[in-house]
Each structure stands twice: as structure tokens, then as C-alpha cells.
Simulated assay, not measured.
Amino acid sequence: MGHGGNVIAELTTDHREVDELFEKIQDQPVGDVQRRKLADELTIELVRHSVAEEMHLYPAVRKYVDGGDDIADKEIADHSEVEQHLKDLEGVPADDPRFENLVALLKLEVAEHVRDEENRLFPLLEAACSPEALDELGDKVRTAKKTAPTRPHPSAPDTPPGNKLLGPGTGLVDRARDLLTGRGKS
């Protein structure tokens, strides 16, 4: 969840962890209950990551990067699609045929989003910000992930100030539900 380093290193490490979770899901036999548990872990990581980006990365992109509003709007739209698919996947048993389709769709969408961030957004942000600003953003992203929701909430606000006001409370409720149900524990 928190890796250290500047915002680009932090989020890139998150991207690799998500890639690994997709691989672990695919490595399990079709219909295996472990696939459902891994999909829950994937959901938790993707939601935390997305919320942290929406709270801190995209406002910085809007502020520092030329054309940042358009870039941030596109990334937030990507997140909305992924979050809706995560919501659709929530509770679908691993032996349900929809499970395979939803995981495959998610993998494609997430891979495209990651490529865009790593190949376009991150270099632009790195060129526009000081190393100190990138380090500070990394700290903010790590802090946000600790209190972020762990379940998809497609209708929740995804831009400030709404996301900053509601996110931590929603995150607290999600983590309480996860604790009670054992969700996210392998």
C-alpha cells in the first residue's frame, strides 16, 4: 500500500502490484474460490490507488502541467469506467461466467490506463514539478491510501472537495466491513 519515494515511484509500484494480482487470478483454475479472494484484493488496491490519484495526483496535474485539465479529466473518466466494472464484479462468484469476462475487461482497461499514465502523464508531471514537489505528492498519496475506501463507489464524488470530504469516512466504513467479513485477507 505504501512504498516510499516520489509520487511517480509510488504509483508505478502500485501499477506493478496490480499487474501481479491480475497474473495471480489468471494462474488459478477457472472457478476456483481463490480467484474471488484475489479479485477482492485487486479491487481494494485499485480503489485505494484511484482515490489517492483523484485526491492528489490529478489536482497537481491540473495545476502544473500544460493542458492538465484535459489530461486529468480523461484519467478520471478512465477511473469511473474501471470503478463501475469493479462494482459489477463485486460479489460475482468465481464460477460465474461473468467473472471471467469482467476480469478480462478490467485487465484491458487498467493496462491502457497505466500505459497512458506512465508514458504520458508521469513524464509531463516530472518535467513540470520540482523533485521536492514530487516527494511531497508521494507522501500525500501514501497517506490518502491509508484512509481511502476499499470498495467501489461509482456514484461518489471523484474531484475535490467532495472526494476529500467523503473519502475518509467511506474508507472507514469499508475497512470495518472488510474486517467483519475477512475480505481482502488471503
Rank of each mutant, 00 (worst) to 15 (best):
E117Q: 00
D66F: 09
H85M: 15
P160V: 09
K87E: 12
E109G: 03
I25H: 03
T181F: 08
R16M: 06
D88I: 12
L134C: 04
E81C: 08
I25K: 00
T159Q: 10
N119F: 10
E17P: 07
A52K: 01
S186H: 09
L105N: 07
P157D: 01
A144G: 01
T143H: 03
G162P: 07
G68A: 08
L108H: 15
P29A: 15
R142P: 08
E10N: 06
V141G: 01
L125Y: 06
L134N: 02
R115N: 00
A111P: 05
I25A: 05
L38C: 11
V61K: 01
P123S: 07
P168K: 05
D14Q: 10
Q26A: 14
P152F: 05
V65Q: 03
L105W: 12
L124D: 04
L89G: 00
H113E: 06
A133R: 11
A104M: 08
D73L: 15
N101S: 15
Q84H: 13
V141H: 01
R16A: 10
L21Y: 02
A77T: 10
H15K: 06
H79Y: 13
T170L: 14
H49Q: 13
L106Q: 06
L106Y: 06
K87F: 12
D78E: 15
V141L: 11
V92D: 05
V173H: 14
E100A: 11
A52T: 04
N163H: 08
L166P: 02
V61D: 03
E100Y: 08
L105S: 13
N119R: 12
K63R: 15
V82F: 12
G162F: 05
L89Y: 04
L21A: 01
V33M: 14
A144K: 01
S50C: 10
I25T: 07
D40I: 02
H85Y: 14
G162K: 03
T150G: 11
K140M: 10
K87W: 14
G31F: 09
E126T: 15
A111R: 05
A128I: 12
N6A: 05
K146E: 15
E136M: 11
G5W: 02
R16P: 05
G31N: 05
D116E: 11
A111E: 11
N163W: 08
H49S: 06
R142V: 10
Q26E: 15
D27E: 14
H113D: 04
I8K: 00
N119W: 09
D40Q: 08
